[in-house]
Design a binder for these strands. Structure first.
Length: 306
DNA sequence: CAGGTATCCTGTCCGC
DNA sequence: TGCGGACAGGATACCT
């Protein structure tokens, strides 16, 4: 998303030109509604968000990404973070084209590039689990909202991952925790665990050093490959230019429950973990008991608890 | 602390 | 064809 927006947005001037009828999420402020619109009969009145917070009249200096969040930074320092959630989209359209009426288009900006070309930027999100989060500056953003995010998954190293997976929760749960590591969601957590041949239910703090190294490499590889293919279009996902992703054709376990494993032909299983459907190969991804030094030296396994 | 579940939403699909 | 229920790419608040 960031890469596709880069050539169009950087250096361009934004102006908020249209606002949808629905409220959207905003970190720390609950749900927000843009100024100028009245809330309909919703019980919890959403707070206001000003055009200024939406970068009205701002010139885009840079686009930053950390994990699943995109930050648009204006030359005057203002920042707007966009998070897509489950169904969010950022779309670039020709300014000339008449927008199709659509209740899920929440924010629209006119983009005036320095070369005089106009375009439209749209934040669309049917389920409204995504949202926009203003920040005063990148310094402010990194010191506050982004402080809670772990290192970005695309550059994660095995040793780093091991350090951050201290608890005894299932490794899949840890991978989905954006404070541990930023940028991994349900699809790629399952895919990376399969690639690294690690069971999703294995306790995070029981992975061996080699397993962490394999897992970190698998995460980087799976994410890089998916980005190169424009992401996984299960249903709605599109690039900002409207292109479909093709990474779903490469899924080895996600969405393949009941089908044979590509590696060993065993049947892919599906369980629920942390409320999320989790697919894995029960043969390739076994829980391993990694003996620690003391256990290998003869300590009773049961005495290692606590 | 860890894990489960409900919640925020809309759309789609499936079985009846 | 209609209807209820399950489920979906995410994150968090609140239970046990």
């Amino acid at each position: 998303m960031r890469r596709s927006l880069l050539p169009v947005l950087v250096g361009a001037r934004l102006s908020v030109v249209a606002l949808g009828a629905h409220d959207v999420r905003s970190r720390g402020r609950g749900r927000v509604r843009a100024v100028g619109l009245r809330a309909k009969d919703s019980r919890a009145q959403p707070a206001w968000i000003s055009p200024s917070a939406l970068l009205h009249c701002g010139v885009v200096r840079a686009l930053h990404r950390h994990g699943k969040q995109l930050a648009i930074e204006a030359a005057d320092g203002r920042v707007l973070v966009i998070q897509l959630g489950m169904s969010g989209q950022v779309l670039l359209e020709a300014a000339g084209a008449r927008p199709v009426p659509d209740t899920h288009r929440h924010i629209e900006w006119l983009i005036r590039s320095s070369s005089g070309h106009d375009a439209r930027l749209v934040f669309r999100d049917p389920r409204r689990f995504g949202g926009v989060h203003p920040a005063g500056s990148m310094i402010d953003l990194r010191a506050n909202a982004w402080r809670d995010l772990g290192p970005d998954a695309l550059g994660i190293a095995g040793a780093q991952l091991a350090l951050r997976c201290a608890g005894s929760r299932a490794i899949k749960i840890a991978l989905l925790d954006q404070a541990v590591l930023a940028g991994v969601g349900n699809i790629y957590a399952d895919e990376a665990l399969f690639r690294a041949r690690i069971s999703p239910v294995q306790a995070a703090n029981r992975l061996s050093r080699q397993q962490f190294v394999r897992l970190a490499a698998a995460l980087r590889a799976v994410l890089r490959a998916a980005i190169a293919r424009g992401g996984s279009t299960l249903r709605d996902h599109r690039s900002a230019l409207g292109e479909l992703g093709t990474a779903q054709a490469r899924h080895r376990v996600y969405g393949r429950s009941g089908l044979p494993c590509f590696r060993c032909r065993a049947t892919i299983r599906s369980i629920r973990l942390g409320g999320r459907t989790t697919a894995f190969c029960p043969a390739c991804q076994r829980v391993t008991t990694n003996l620690t030094k003391s256990a290998a030296a003869g300590a009773r396994p049961s005495s290692r608890r606590r």
